[in-house]
Nucleic acid binder design. Structure first.
Lengths: 105, 105
DNA sequence: TCACCATATAGCCAGATAGTTATCCTTGCA
DNA sequence: TGCAAGGATAACTATCTGGCTATATGGTGA
């Protein structure tokens, strides 16, 4: 069974969400815990505006969920497939590495 | 264990290879069999130059391998993780779909 | 009501890249 | 040797988007 153009586009959009280091960094921070936007900003070296923007993109892709708590918004990974994809990607990079230095998400 | 900036970049690059419909279409054609460039071109609606370009990108990412046979170059999927990633992505899209229409790569 | 904090959004710019056309390189064969 | 076919590459363009600054929105406490 082959996917048509529209379905391929949807798959591509999903992967595109993972195709940027900043978004991966956000995902990595969220791996352990739910976090507020400002907490995430504190962990990364980019602006609050950019973190919000990338979180929106991740949310639109269905990869993170949010809930409000007072003035804060707490984000978390919405789907375990996120971890699965990251693990598979790291496994491949570890396999391909000439000098192994075990990546683990 | 957290990935550093360079490692995140490498993971992002890997996902980026999957983040374009044309490349996914190529991967999809290669799912069953090894194929020549012109065979692939015949299945898709884009130019030979573009197929070569995208194949090079997939090859650089370690996702496809090539071997020459006469004047032809035959490409195949180099790593089963390709299928695994595609399956996980399709599974998610199927789960998220309001009206299920089972995607399967 | 006001000041303040957390988050989201708007508008802009620079860099990246998918796709095109044209051209080059390589191989096999007459 | 020459030519034709299969692939790769170059150069260019249009589009997309990550990141920035500035601003808007919304909740909280005094």
């Amino acid at each position: 069974m082959k996917l048509n153009a529209q379905q391929l586009e949807r798959v591509a959009n999903l992967f595109r969400a993972f195709a940027e280091p900043t978004r991966l960094a956000i995902v990595q921070e969220l791996k352990a815990d739910e976090m507020s936007v400002s907490d995430i900003v504190g962990c990364l070296s980019t602006s609050q505006a950019n973190v919000s923007k990338q979180l929106k993109l991740l949310h639109d892709a269905g990869l993170v969920s949010r809930r409000k708590q007072g003035t804060q918004v707490l984000y978390r990974i919405a789907d375990p497939m996120v971890f699965e994809l990251c693990r598979i990607a790291c496994d491949k990079l570890n396999r391909d590495a000439v000098r192994p230095a075990k990546l683990k998400f």
